[in-house]
């Protein structure tokens, strides 16, 4: 996949591209507002209190979305995150039930995520011949496998002392801690990706790995950092997911990787690397969340919601392609 992106060196953020991106994000914002109006119209229960409450479970996934944005910009992919969520949540429950104080449990949860991410990063940077999809497919099975073995024959564990988790679920005003944290992380990560040299280097790598290497960028080091980061964020997700589950089992976090990638892509981040903006992913995440909540409140067949999301994904990637082709034609015409 990385090879394909090699030709578009111009994809490093600059005037023209940035404008296009802004327009995509502008469109997403319009859609976001439209979805909310739509929600209010179709469901009598679609109000701020309910939406913020229902959002809890999905918010946990948004944390991973930030990391996935970084990974996708690199031109890589990580499909092991769902399993990392499962493993870190499992370890949190087991350590909590072993009587460890809650702050230690939190550290263990985040630590497990970080270590998993570092393992991914290590393999991905040591064996650069391997596509990252395969590396993380392997670790996806392994991480969940470790969780399965630690959970034993029951395959499920509940957190006995939920005081700490309840504290995580407390609200400041109308907003929960996880909501505020998502907003703060959004600001931090968007700034890192857009404004720092670190972020620009990621775009450079994603656009053309070889060129980036020649330009003196330590490609493997940055890739390692990004994998560690997404692992850590999966740990954060595990923690907050636990706050709305109070327990973990072998299916916890199943399929999160695809949902998170869908958020990124719908937000305009290309899987081929070097293109897209985290702002888009951020808005897209909330578009999908609000849509799910609105349709859910009307008790629409859950499978049909998936069909709708799938259709949205395709439409969202086809539109820029079509409009791009049109502008390209116009440009060509005007040049001639």
């Amino acid at each position: 996949m990385a090879g394909k992106s090699g030709r578009e060196i111009s994809a490093v953020p600059q005037g023209g591209i940035k404008k296009t991106l802004l327009s995509w994000e502008g469109a997403l914002l319009v859609v976001f507002i439209a979805i909310n109006i739509f929600g209010v119209i179709i469901s009598p229960n679609y109000n701020a209190t309910n939406v913020l409450r229902e959002m809890q479970k999905y918010l946990a996934e948004v944390f991973i979305m930030f990391g996935m944005g970084f990974i996708l910009v690199l031109g890589d992919i990580d499909i092991s995150v769902g399993s990392i969520v499962c493993l870190s949540a499992t370890m949190a429950c087991l350590s909590g039930n072993a009587g460890l104080p809650f702050p230690i449990v939190v550290l263990i949860t985040l630590g497990v995520g970080l270590i998993c991410g570092m393992i991914n990063g290590l393999i991905a940077t040591q064996f650069t011949e391997l596509p990252t999809m395969i590396v993380t497919l392997g670790t996806q099975i392994i991480f969940r496998g470790i969780a399965e073995v630690s959970l034993g024959s029951g395959g499920s564990v509940s957190m006995q002392d939920v005081k700490g988790l309840m504290a995580l679920g407390t609200k400041i005003g109308p907003f929960s801690i996880s909501f505020i944290l998502v907003i703060v992380s959004a600001i931090v990560f968007i700034t890192i990706l857009n404004k720092t040299s670190f972020g620009r280097k990621l775009y450079a790598i994603g656009s053309n790995k070889t060129a980036a290497r020649y330009a003196g960028i330590n490609v493997e080091k940055l890739r390692f950092i990004c994998y560690s980061l997404i692992g850590f964020l999966a740990g954060v997700c595990g923690l907050f997911l636990l706050a709305s589950l109070y327990g973990a089992n072998t299916t916890t976090g199943n399929g999160f990787e695809m949902e998170v990638i869908a958020m990124c892509v719908f937000g305009g981040i290309a899987t081929t690397g070097g293109k897209g903006n985290l702002i888009g992913g951020f808005i897209a995440a909330f578009v999908i969340i609000c849509l799910r909540i609105a349709l859910g409140q009307r008790n629409i067949n859950t499978q049909l919601i998936l069909v709708i999301i799938g259709a949205m994904l395709i439409v969202s990637v086809v539109i820029p392609a079509i409009s791009g082709a049109i502008t390209a034609k116009k440009k060509r015409a005007s040049v001639n």
């Binding site: 502008g26 319009v30 859609v31 439209a34 349709l295 009307r298 709708i308 439409v315 969202s316 539109i319």
Partner: peptide, 17 residues
Amino acid sequence: LSVLLSTAMAATLLVGC
């Protein structure tokens, strides 16, 4: 873009309803 995207959304949502 906005119009296209919004129309597409509205269409898919209508199906849902």
